[in-house]
Design a protein around this nucleic acid. Structure first.
Lengths: 131, 131
DNA sequence: GATTGACTCTATAGTTGCTATAGAGTTTAA
DNA sequence: TTAAACTCTATAGCAACTATAGAGTCAATC
């Protein structure tokens, strides 16, 4: 099949598929006489793998690592769950940051009310001179 | 003062200050004979304003809006607290997304344990064929 | 007065994972 | 044969910077 059909079957965009090839998440596709990329259906699975990895926020470079790991099935998998643990830590930290941010935004919002002018705006005053 | 001193006083990088000028968050600086940017101390306050806005995640374009608002002190400030409300909503949504992601990562992590090989790795199996 | 060092200037590339073009070529069907 | 639909590569854009390159400026020292 050509890249357009692969895109439909996998739910990835054509450009994304070409990008994945460029970043070594897919092997270089075979080419037709007219230089069109040709795929067999196994590549759909590979793209689904990539999509699942992206859905848990793994970077393309990390996905390339995972694919590399798969080539050595008898080695230890420690590095893989370290990768996941590391991501979990980052996500938790980001949640904390955003919760703090939400608190700040709420208190900022509380400093203003309806029917005020720019000059009286509590939000602007806070942003301008907050200590 | 020249840009280096302004950078030190404000805690912004020299490049960031030049970027803010380019994006109209600062007025074009006066120039010395040798074409160096020259500032007076009021610009430190302006940079602190920008830093506080950035710390609550406002985009540079939104900060440019706020600065524009300040020029019309007698108009209503409704748009400002709408902006803050909108940001709060986005932050809350992002927190929810990340909490879901954390749950997914934790259950993924639970699918593997020590002393397994790549071939046996529960994480990889999940990513490969989940549903 | 020449040189050194610290500073500044503009312009550009890099970061991330795409999307969206431009301009060209290929394939299929009418 | 010509039009539509597809594909190709290469490039720019996003956001908010950081980090260079290569050139110019300025002040102090030898």
């Amino acid at each position: 099949m050509k890249i357009g059909e692969l895109a439909k079957l996998s739910g990835c965009s054509v450009q994304a598929i070409r990008l994945y090839e460029k970043k070594h998440l897919l092997e270089p596709a075979q080419r037709s006489e007219g230089n069109f990329r040709l795929y067999d259906s196994s590549v759909v699975e590979q793209l689904m793998f990539i999509k699942r990895c992206r859905s848990i926020n793994l970077a393309l470079s990390e996905i390339a690592c995972l694919i590399e790991f798969k080539r050595a099935p008898d080695t230890r998998c420690d590095d893989i769950y370290k990768m996941i643990d590391c991501h979990t830590d980052q996500v938790e930290q980001r949640i904390h940051e955003l919760e703090n941010l939400r608190r700040d935004l709420e208190s900022l919002r509380a400093s203003c009310s309806s029917n005020r002018t720019i000059q009286q705006c509590g939000i602007l005053q806070n942003l301008t001179s907050k200590d």
